[in-house]
């Protein structure tokens, strides 16, 4: 039995060095050379080096001149991600969806059946960076009017930023909200900072 425990200890130490250590070092070294941007988290920086965010992680947008991401159960907190875990029959959940529907109808001036379900349901991670193209189209008129630019130009931008499914059939067509908003700011003047309210989250 003592022999077995000794072998167990030796095995634990050896494999810990191999799989806890060497395996990570190998992938880290490869990643640094081959995918330096992705392995650091696909960050976007301002010219002065400060970080704006990550293309893979949703951030809150509330101003009328920007496209809004999907609802988040964690307030887009990328340090503690998660979904709502609301069951499909939970009355409180269905009430929250109804309130989001009404808010979206009022904000975008549309009918209920024009509201895509993605915009009234929380994502699994709470930081889903994408919206489907119809959810972007839904917001085009509002964004255009807040910026005083033609809707057609905004729609062109949406189309340019629509990522099709892989090989035409795998996954879904989607629009990255942060990239689209940054493209908007590049193409047209950013909305006045006064229009942006700091919510504290």
């Amino acid at each position: 039995m003592v022999k077995e425990i000794k072998r167990g200890m030796a095995f634990t130490v050896v494999t810990m060095v191999l799989f806890g250590g060497a395996y990570h070092v190998a992938l880290w070294a490869l990643g640094r050379v081959a995918f330096p941007d992705q392995t650091e988290g696909s960050l976007i920086r301002r010219p002065d080096g400060t970080i704006i965010g990550s293309t893979l992680i949703a951030q809150a947008f509330t101003g009328p001149g920007y496209f809004h991401p999907r609802p988040s159960a964690v307030g887009y907190n990328a340090a503690s991600t998660g979904g709502s875990n609301d069951g499909p029959s939970n009355p409180e959940f269905l009430k929250a969806v109804e309130e989001r529907r009404d808010a979206t109808m009022a904000l975008e001036r549309v009918r209920a059946n024009q509201v895509p379900s993605e915009m009234v349901t929380a994502s699994g991670s709470g930081v889903d960076p994408d919206i489907p193209p119809d959810a972007a189209d839904l917001q085009a008129a509002r964004v255009a009017s807040a910026r005083g630019i033609p809707v057609a130009r905004v729609r062109q931008l949406i189309e340019a930023h629509t990522e099709p499914p892989a090989w035409g059939f795998f996954g879904r067509a989607r629009v990255n909200v942060l990239e689209l908003n940054l493209a908007l700011d590049r193409a047209f003047t950013a909305p006045a900072p006064a229009a942006v309210k700091y919510s504290g989250r």
Partner: peptide
């Protein structure tokens, strides 16, 4: 609730 649910039940799911 009358919203467009053509893409299915999306609560807790990711668009991609």
């Amino acid at each position: 609730l009358g919203v467009d649910q053509a893409s299915g039940s999306m609560e807790g799911k990711e668009v991609r």
